[in-house]
């Protein structure tokens, strides 16, 4: 058992962090907004933590948790502000167009971070101070955060704002006619997701001990979208489950050696085809269903 936690301690925490990233894409999707910007805010959050902890807060010994919490707060706030600035013009777009606009944002951020000296160019920032003595130690922070965000998402789905989000997803025109302000709610959903992604980035920078321009990329955006879609995009349980399963999969398949990513890809394909509702099928979550699940035809 101890050996298991030693080997997979990192993976377990990483699964939770990826689940949180999944949730950060799920939040705008709840309001019908297909945003792929999570990886961009994730990158911003990571840089905030990396720069603050290596250049501003000088400490010796274990890094104080308080500083880490302060970093996550600032990372979340900055991401939220950027999200509002980008979101107000961008969220007029719909569907695939919004997805592409957000990808454009991610890619611009990547190129800029490669060229700034404060972000360390290609090498990035390394030697980030550690608040915990082992990777598994991060579970004390990440575990409660995940539960908290899940609880928040659960409550949100049943709340007035959450119902407004879902109404926008189902039919924007009708929602507008019912007096739901589309712009306000879309930007709110987008900013909530962005803040969460920024927080996850800040924790991840410490967790990985290094941060660079390879962290927030198009590939990450697509991987996170796959978490939501494979997990199920109709309840908060979907992205959590999807994020965990898809993150663990390459490690579970490790014994297959050279074949592992071939099988990984096959499973991704099969899951998309045979689990159209996602792993977290709302039918077996029916008891806490808040909105009628409408089959698309």
């Amino acid at each position: 058992m101890e050996a298991f936690f030693q080997t997979y301690g990192f993976l377990l925490v990483y699964m939770c962090l990826q689940a949180l990233l999944g949730l950060s894409t799920y939040l705008p999707l709840m309001a019908g907004q297909l945003s792929l910007a999570s990886s961009g805010f994730y990158a911003i959050g990571g840089y905030v933590a990396a720069i603050l902890s290596t250049q501003v807060f000088h400490t010796s010994g274990a890094y104080p948790i308080g500083y880490l919490l302060l970093e996550t707060l600032l990372a979340g706030l900055l991401s939220g502000v950027v999200a509002v600035v980008v979101g107000i013009p961008a969220l007029r777009l719909r569907g695939i167009y919004l997805a592409l606009a957000t990808i454009a944002m991610v890619e611009i951020l990547r190129v800029v971070s490669l060229n700034l000296s404060i972000t360390g160019g290609a090498v990035g920032i390394f030697g980030i101070a550690q608040p915990f003595s082992s990777p598994l130690g991060y579970m004390w922070l990440v575990g409660p955060l995940l539960l908290l965000v899940m609880f928040f998402a659960y409550r949100l789905e049943g709340s007035r704002i959450g119902r407004a989000f879902i109404a926008l997803r189902e039919d924007e025109l009708a929602a507008d006619a019912m007096g739901i302000n589309p712009t306000y709610h879309k930007v709110l959903a987008f900013a909530l997701g962005a803040m969460l992604a920024g927080v996850v980035g800040a924790i991840s920078a410490h967790f990985l001990n290094t941060w660079n321009a390879r962290q927030g990329t198009f590939d990450v955006s697509i991987a996170v979208l796959a978490y939501v879609l494979i997990g199920g995009s109709r309840s908060f349980a979907g992205p959590v489950l999807g994020g965990m399963v898809l993150t663990a999969l390459p490690e579970v398949l490790r014994p297959l050696k050279d074949l592992r990513f071939i099988v990984d890809g096959l499973l991704l394909m099969l899951a998309a085809i045979y689990l159209p509702q996602g792993l977290a099928n709302p039918n077996w979550l029916a008891r806490r269903k808040t909105a009628p699940v409408r089959e698309k035809t």
Partner: peptide, 22 residues
């Protein structure tokens, strides 16, 4: 298979992503 079921078109994005990976 996705089209036959009238599934969310976004799922085609994931299944083609998987196919590309393979």
């Amino acid at each position: 298979p996705l089209r036959a079921r009238g599934a969310d078109p976004l799922l085609a994005l994931v299944s083609s992503l998987g196919a590309g990976l393979v």
